[in-house]
Design a protein around this nucleic acid. Structure first.
Lengths: 240, 240
DNA sequence: GTCCGGAAATTGACATGACAGAAAACAGGA
DNA sequence: TCCTGTTTTCTGTCATGTCAATTTCCGGAC
């Protein structure tokens, strides 16, 4: 059932992406897109059969996902999509606040004039997007969220520290995942919410940039908290 | 050196630590202790034979180490201990500054009275250790460094945020590793260096705690930088 | 009804071995 | 001596299959 993929030996161009990488990206995508809800149990053999590969690359992919914090597994009991506790989400936000505040400092210190202009433009565009986001269309929400993420990553990029940028991105993945789970509806934001943030980030006062980013990050937490609370701690129950 | 570990079937208590975990911890320890220098190439089969196991758990261990940033591997070319660039070390210090400054904030805000007393006691003890550290005995240096690490982790612990603590610890591993590589000799520190840090961290002004920790972290960077500069960028032999 | 204990099914951990790609050693021609 | 193409010897990737541990299922005792 798998032999049909035995590599194109005749072809010249072979990026030759490992099967485990394919599995990792695919599974990760399905989690991040919300196609599999937190608590869903993965069967490595089923996944292997489904993807047409042995369950060894599947295992490697799940292990990487576990390291990312997206799934959790117990030695011989199963692997499931991670369901976070409220405390953990708070913790992630604490880490995020630390990283993004640092990002704001660096950006405030190092960004070029053109980059600052672009950030302001992006912020304004994002604010107008939010202003028209009352129609809670899922696709539209996804677009808005993507823009939001991009603004933050752009700030990190203009800080010119790759390691910080990577750390922020990795941390975002988790928050993004959980956020998606409860983001069916969207709250409205104060007008010029991001514009004022960027105003500080592109300003001259590094501490003001730090403070503004901290406030910005903290603003979103209560919304997530109250929406995720009803979700039970999640016991280990395998469905049949 | 390996076969004696074929599981204690007779015993009742079975922590049953997986082989991959054993390999991970062992290899990681040997890297962190500096027994294998940066740039050393690992042979999975050799390691497997050496540890008396198949190279599958070895592969899993190396993959985890790669995720930790301690080793790097290329698809079918080999796995070696990571040799960092100066820029990367700077980047790690940027991340560390962000995390530890947040840790200082939380500790300043949340630590109990007794915990603050203990931190001050630890800091004074550490300062006296540094004061007598002119004898650059390796073991003694190791002890000093261990105490230093413990102080930082204690501050993180008293901040009462598990996720932040874990992030700091993970980030420390890398810096610690590289530090060890060049830590044959030790520079002297200003008197009461840590005591004054802790004084701010256990004080009443959160921003002062933040600033003090940032300064503290930044203090150590130049020393590492100039010591690691001569080390070549470490060519991995980028393919044609 | 609930509780409990053993059987069956399913899980992850691991061994073994085959295979293709990359690097290093090597041979030959300028 | 310096390329250049070949071969040998690594490397990591992956398939297949076994095993022990865990969970679930199910029937009997209360």
């Amino acid at each position: 059932m798998q032999s049909s993929k035995t590599v194109r030996t005749g072809s010249k161009a072979k990026p030759q992406v490992p099967l485990s990488e394919q599995a990792y990206l695919t599974i990760r995508e399905s989690i991040l897109r919300g196609r599999v809800r937190p608590g869903t149990v993965f069967s490595r053999r089923k996944l292997a059969e489904e993807y047409g590969m042995s369950f060894l690359p599947i295992s490697e992919a799940l292990q990487r996902l576990e390291n990312d914090g997206l799934v959790e597994s117990r030695p011989r009991a199963g692997t499931r999509v991670r369901v976070p506790t409220v405390e953990e989400i708070r913790g992630r936000y604490v880490v995020r606040e630390a990283l993004e505040a640092q990002s704001a400092r660096l950006c405030c210190d190092r960004a070029t004039f053109e980059e600052r202009l672009e950030l302001r433009r992006m912020a304004e565009q994002l604010d107008t997007l939010y202003a028209h986001a009352e129609s809670a269309e899922p696709d539209f929400q996804f677009v808005v969220h993507t823009h939001h993420l991009e603004l933050h990553m752009r700030i990190a990029q203009y800080g010119r520290c790759k390691e910080l940028r990577d750390a922020i991105e990795k941390n975002h993945v988790l928050i993004y995942n959980w956020f998606y789970d409860v983001a069916a509806e969207r709250r409205s934001l104060p007008p010029h919410f991001h514009a004022e943030l960027v105003l500080q980030v592109t300003g001259t006062d590094i501490r003001a940039a730090d403070d503004a980013m901290r406030e910005h990050v903290r603003y979103g937490l209560p919304f997530i908290e109250e929406r995720i609370a009803p979700s039970s701690p999640g016991e280990w129950r395998l469905k049949r």
